[in-house]
Simulated assay, not measured.
Amino acid sequence: MNDLSENTEKKQSSRFEKGVSGNPNGRPRGSRNKTTLAAYSLFKDEAEAITKEAIEAAKGGDITAIRLCLDRIAPPIKHAPIPAVDLPPLQSLSDLPAFYASLNTLLGDGALSIEELNSLVSMADKFRQSVDLADLELRIEALELNKTN
């Protein structure tokens, strides 16, 4: 048992020096993984036939093939723009209550979805945080000036 503990206490030597990379430039930009290259070479000659087969399956009513083809033609929109709505401008913290009241009205009228509302509330919160930080910075500067005087 002592031999085992002695071995674990000794620092194992390594053929690599700590903190020094064997490839200081890193992997070349645009280089491909060997598995990816192998997959490309397998499909290279068959890509056209596979694509035609997927299209034929879609035409035959295969829902998975239809989804695959449509996703390639027109991928789903992830971030649609928020529709133009009338909102009061945010210039100070005192503008926030009117801004939130307008959001509630627009949501109630169906002019905004809950996702759009959440985006606008998040934006208003970021505005509040930035005003708070600016105010805090001014207070700290004033305290530092008073401290040095």
Rank of each mutant, 00 (worst) to 15 (best):
S31W: 02
T148D: 07
K18G: 01
L145V: 11
K147M: 09
K59G: 02
E116L: 09
A101H: 11
A58E: 01
I77P: 00
K59Q: 06
A39P: 00
K18I: 11
Q91D: 05
L87W: 04
D135K: 15
P89K: 14
N33V: 02
L87E: 03
L68F: 12
A124T: 00
L117A: 10
C69L: 15
K34H: 06
F16I: 12
A142R: 10
N7G: 09
S113L: 10
L37H: 01
P83D: 05
Q129M: 13
Q129P: 00
P89S: 12
A54R: 09
K59D: 02
A39Q: 02
E46K: 15
L103E: 02
S92I: 02
L112W: 03
E53K: 12
L4D: 02
L93F: 08
S31P: 00
P88W: 14
S122V: 04
S5Y: 13
R128D: 04
S5N: 08
L138T: 06
R29H: 10
S92R: 09
L68I: 09
P81K: 15
K126T: 06
D132H: 15
A124G: 04
I140F: 07
L103R: 12
M1T: 09
L37K: 02
I73A: 12
L120C: 07
T105C: 07
S13A: 13
Q129E: 08
S113K: 12
M1C: 09
D62T: 08
D135C: 09
N104A: 11
N149L: 14
D95L: 06
I63G: 00
R72V: 06
S122F: 14
L112Y: 04
A57D: 09
S94Y: 12
L42G: 01
I63P: 00
L120A: 03
F16H: 06
P97Q: 13
L93W: 01
A39H: 01
V121E: 14
I140Y: 05
N149I: 13
A134C: 04
